[in-house]
Design a protein around this nucleic acid. Structure first.
Lengths: 338, 338
DNA sequence: CTGAAAGCGCTTACAG
DNA sequence: CTGAAAGCGCTTACAG
């Protein structure tokens, strides 16, 4: 059935070892032998069997990722595809493929990762995000398995990671709103166990503090509530005596929800309230009003993460273990002074 | 380093064969032997090596997909993540993982697929879309490799495929616009070499014909133009003497572009022109106006495709080879009579 | 420059 | 019920 190295060896009248060496391109082989073997390789259309090669060489040429478990979490995950595209493109350039597993529960996530790592299915893992005391990170550390984290880590300082300076980004985004004349600025938050969300909240607080503007607790609302209880959260916010004139929103996807909610309540953006968010997904430019957003270089994050992991696997020593991808404030209609 | 079946065998004082059988759960093994082996398995934290297992069993427990090559094609691909989630979830349930490869060029795409298939990396392939005379389909057919196609096929009628009835869906969507009082209806098309796009165009034409409304050629514009030449295409369309009062748009992503373009030209939707599109991505509900769209059951498409492929791999004979996932018209603001 | 042999970690007839 | 052996398809010291 399958054309093996043995078939090639027979036809070319050499030993399998020689065929293997010709393919690998190393080892000193006679010129005419090389030519002859190459010829047969072509004729038979030989293609190495990946598992066999992997078994012998102890390598898989595969990177693993765990798909974020978002059963129906429509928000906040529009940028994962772009991230994965970056990872995949870089991997592909080194002949690596991506093995992807899912887990709808935290438990399943762990199991998927274990299967990958302990089963020797991948050479390294890219973690797409990190939460507080992340069990996946713990697992990887215990196994001493090569991985790169997209995000920040509360676990081990030496972790190879690629990240946005989210504190800084949130700080700048808030400053932009302040520069537009806003003094009462609210924050639509994401799940508090994600480190990226904590960082963004911190940056926002810092900017407000520095400007000498107080932050009211009622101004900070949970973005997840938007899904469950419709737009009650927004409605309550807008009915406050001292309601904010602007909102920093954790993510463009959530921001679309906020925008819609405000619209249904009869408010106009930016006339009645300004909005500014993070991630700059493709649709942010196309919405009406277009969304002011921090472009975090999503593709670049993924690309760089894969790149650094590949370097690590190649045994190249790195000077540093933490890489920051520059972000960029993209000002659009949603936040411009009315 | 790695705990092998041999280590377990030694410690449990049995042969590797026996350990293998205990793990597989087949073969008649003594009760106490089973218990003893299981015990050691646990103690040592044994995990089978995937490549070795695959080599011996000639199976990979992996499904392959080729990531659509969309370097910067922001439109029309917002539903792929959802599709992949469906595939991945179903695969995961049978202990299968997903191997993902990219190719930015058609050439690279072919190579990625070849590597997967000829390298024995996957047991089957899920094709995420199909074009006319698709080279990937040809490759798979030549290799006689198991695959399922999400979409329709101009190649071989017996191909296992899971699809939307796009002709019907477009027909219904157009009928809806007609029912809203529109007589001049235009169409924003996608790349003509994608079969899904042809089908949708056909359904639109059919509905128009049946209603006795003529279709002008100038009413059919190329959605890809929206990206390159800004909104010139839309501007030209709207300046026509007999301009359409409604547009069927090939995809929600493209529809966002159209919406934005109309907005910049000073037109209001649906007051000045109605819009209706396909795919019903998550954001369609959140836009202002919200988008009327055909929900194609994206997740279900992916899930079913994986399911059928898995059945095929398991050797289960299927009665039919083509599965249609029901679609559903979701009427929202963008198409409602003014 | 080239081949025979052992080995990667598993499975599975074949014997008993 | 269990083990020894051969084999999956490749690679890589070891010899020569």
């Amino acid at each position: 059935m399958r054309v093996t190295i043995k078939d090639v060896a027979n036809k070319a009248q050499v030993s399998p070892s020689t065929v293997s060496r010709v393919i690998a391109g190393n080892g000193r082989i006679g010129k005419d032998t090389i030519l002859r073997v190459r010829q047969v390789l072509d004729e038979l259309g030989y293609h190495p069997h990946h598992a066999a090669q992997g078994l012998a060489k102890r390598t898989t040429c595969t990177l693993g990722i765990i798909l974020p478990r978002t059963p129906d979490d429509v928000f906040s995950n529009f940028f994962f595809p772009e991230l994965i595209r970056g990872i995949s493109t870089r991997a592909s350039r080194s002949g690596f493929d991506i093995l992807m597993a899912t887990g709808s529960l935290a438990q399943e996530e762990r199991e998927s990762l274990t299967r990958m790592v302990r089963g020797g299915r991948v050479d390294g893992v890219v973690l797409l995000s990190s939460r507080l005391e992340d069990p996946l990170i713990r697992l990887l550390e215990e196994e001493q398995f090569p991985y790169v984290l997209i995000g920040r880590n509360d676990y081990s300082a030496s972790t190879l990671s690629v990240d946005t300076d989210n504190i800084r980004a949130a700080y700048e985004l808030t400053q932009h709103l302040i520069a537009q004349g806003n003094q009462r600025i609210g924050f639509v938050a994401g799940p508090a166990n994600m480190i990226v969300n904590r960082d963004r909240l911190e940056g926002y607080r810092k900017a407000m503090e520095e400007a000498g503007y107080p932050v009211q607790n009622e101004w900070i609302i949970d973005g997840e509530l938007l899904q469950q209880s419709g737009f009650r959260a927004i409605s309550m916010l807008m009915e406050l005596e001292d309601r904010p004139t602007a909102l920093v929103v954790i993510d463009d996807g959530v921001c679309f929800g906020v925008l819609r909610g405000l619209g249904e309540l009869g408010y106009h953006v930016p006339q009645d309230i300004s909005l500014a968010a993070f991630n700059n997904i493709a649709l942010s430019e196309l919405s009406t009003p277009s969304l002011t957003s921090i472009d975090i270089g999503t593709y670049q994050l993924g690309y760089t993460a894969a790149h650094q992991l590949l370097l690590l696997l190649a045994g190249e020593e790195k000077a540093k273990s933490r890489f920051i991808i520059p972000h960029r404030l993209v000002v659009r209609e949603s936040s411009l002074r009315k």
